[in-house]
Amino acid sequence: MGENRLPVVDARDIVKVYQSGSEQLKVLDHVSIQVRRKDFIAILGPSGSGKSTLMHILGCLDLPTSGEYYLDGLDVLRLKENQLAEIRNKKLGFVFQKFNLLPRLTAIQNVVLPLLYRGIDEKEAMKLAEEKLSLLGLGERLNHKPNELSGGEQQRVAIARAIVGNPEVILADEPTGNLDSKSTKDVIGVFQELNKQGNTIVMITHDVEVARQANKIFYIRDGKIYDDGGLP
């Protein structure tokens, strides 16, 4: 096993408990997951299974109640909020079900934003953003606002935003959940292509067909995770 096959995402015994009133809700129950560089992983589960919570924890947007999480060798649970923001900026790229583009910004302004938060010079950043958008076939749509784009196009803008900073891991939360079948195929194709180019992708979905396009599937049910062969 080469150096580049070390796990970039290494989460162990992750527990997440929500307190609602006097009741405790265990959303994640000792979940462990390793993702190696260049993996394309799907986490498949029905709604309410805890897959989104897992995604938020892997994305450093939320902290687990207990467990350990190393991202690219960094002990995430010991980091301060500003350091987490920096990790989200440099090591992670998010793709959401609802695209989550900023409505008042154009496509290229949306894509350039993570680079600006990184402190990269605006001219340089614009060049990179334009490159990524062109790569995703949106070279003609740079100055369109989200509401002027189709769902598939919006999701491709979101993907461009996720990859523009060359993250270690792309996290996609139901990326096809709001798309028609043609756009779904389209977006999955983009992910496969990105994976072929060496990007590491973790994709959450409830759609078996979509999950099958990944190289490896984890199943999640009632807060517990099972790998390929292990679904009861």
Partner: peptide, 14 residues
């Protein structure tokens, strides 16, 4: 609020 969440997700600091 949602937008603030997006900004935080892409790395905006406090």
């Amino acid at each position: 609020t949602g937008e603030i969440g997006i900004l935080k997700a892409i790395g905006a600091k406090k």
